[in-house]
Design a protein around this nucleic acid. Structure first.
Lengths: 257, 257
DNA sequence: ATACCGATGCCACAAATTACAACATAATTG
DNA sequence: CAATTATGTTGTAATTTGTGGCATCGGTAT
């Protein structure tokens, strides 16, 4: 086995589990303890993990404290959330996907009443559950520790039984050609299914998502009726979007009441 | 278990609960009192928590949320949880129903690794998700605001696809005749289905549940292999239980080290 | 107040685990 | 083949953890 393979494997183990002991790695790899130690020393020196007594810990601070993880551009996302919530009347049924921007939508919906909410995000669930006689349906599936979202066949099978007034999904990226993109296939498939599960389909994405790429292209983009963002996109993307049958809303954050 | 993992776990326990005693940590981790003391001393010196007589308190000013809601007999439930967790090896697949006693089971499982968890409780999900490379599957369905549990057809349909090593369910009541009872039909049906979805089926119920009634009788009680409680039940109930093919375990809470 | 008791803190030492360095052996490369 | 590198082996030092003894704290009964 090549040294590089070993180190990649060790790194991925450390990063998925947060930490790992040398004994544990030794059980998986058929090499001596010293070799693993040397690998860890090398990975530590190149700052890809941190060596500790008996093993190694990941450098990515994988704290599942995702409740306080509203990191990038919180102000923009809040404006987007407010704009999105203003589309929704009390008593509506809505689908909310996972993601930090859709979390902002959920926050902005705290003032609404009698909503029927379908979501694959435990965070959204926790926010809207028990508030103002909302009914919250959680989609089933394997929970991703990174974002607290359920994904997979269980989620899509369950979602197929429902149809809502609104759906709000985020985006991994929106390409220069105006494609909606995601980072994992499962997420893309769920988003695609969500888009055809509601009358009004809204994509929320702050300006940081525009003009970038992600590996998966999300289908059913033609179902999208609204795109809400916080700044006017570049002319090239804007042109691509205007060719589509959807409304682009720029949430400027001005209180319109 | 790596020292750093231990300290991370202690820190997260302290921060979610506001404070914790060394004895309590010892129940969850399988290390000696001195080791925990030394961990706490180290965490105190790096100002990540404050050491007190018998335990530690958090340095975060945030109040511990409604996570530590008024529960009946928390000490008994904790003992039950510890006893339940001692049945489970690392790497096992387990189903955990909703309820305060099953939450105690989930807490006691924080020291385990590589668990595959199926649950209908968002609280259990939040506790075990992202810990020690557990995989958590959330059952779908309508979320009950009272207990954060998903119920209904979505949950049962999804659960039917899975089979686990262990299942832990609570009880609304255990009648004098030794019947397992619940308060709602949907909960009873889910519990009944859960009982036949694992090789080892464990009912956890503190002594307050015995000799009482609830409207729904749960089926598949004959699948139950273990009943864990915190006090020896009344002779009448005990006799009824001993006639059944299950082990009655009394969690006495003694630390077995 | 005094005595007592259990729980906890603290210390010292033993046992186990791990780190590190030195060297031997295998694998690779030119 | 020689040179070089990677890996395994071995022995010793360092660290961690467990264990038992004993002091201390907080409470309670006398």
């Amino acid at each position: 086995m090549l040294a590089e393979e070993r180190q990649r494997l060790i790194l991925s183990l450390v990063n998925t589990r947060g930490s790992i002991s040398i004994t544990e790695i030794k059980r998986k790899l058929r090499v001596s303890r010293e070799t693993i130690r040397r690998d860890i020393v090398a990975l530590d020196q190149s700052k890809r993990l941190r060596k500790t007594h008996g093993g190694a810990v990941s450098m990515e601070q994988n704290e599942p404290e995702m409740n306080v993880r509203q990191v990038m551009n919180p102000a923009g996302k809040q404006k987007i959330g407010t704009a999105a919530a203003s589309l929704v009347p009390d008593g509506a049924s809505i689908i909310i996907a996972s993601g930090t921007t859709t979390q902002a939508v959920a926050e902005a919906l705290l003032g609404h009443r009698d909503l029927t909410v379908f979501t694959n995000s435990v965070i959204v669930c926790g926010k809207l559950m028990g508030h103002n006689s909302n009914r919250v349906y959680m989609l089933g599936g394997e929970v991703q520790p990174i974002n607290g979202a359920t994904l997979g066949r269980d989620a899509t099978v369950m979602l197929a039984n429902y149809f809502a007034d609104f759906v709000f999904i985020g985006a991994g990226a929106i390409s220069p050609a105006g494609w909606l993109m995601d980072y994992t296939r499962e997420e893309g498939e769920l988003h695609s299914l969500m888009l055809q599960s509601a009358r009004t389909a809204v994509v929320v994405a702050d300006h940081g998502k525009f003009g970038r790429f992600a590996p998966i292209r999300v289908g059913n983009f033609e179902k999208v009726t609204h795109l809400i963002t916080d700044r006017t996109p570049d002319p090239e993307i804007m042109a691509a979007l205007e060719a589509l049958p959807l409304d682009v809303l720029i949430a400027d954050g001005r209180d319109n009441d």
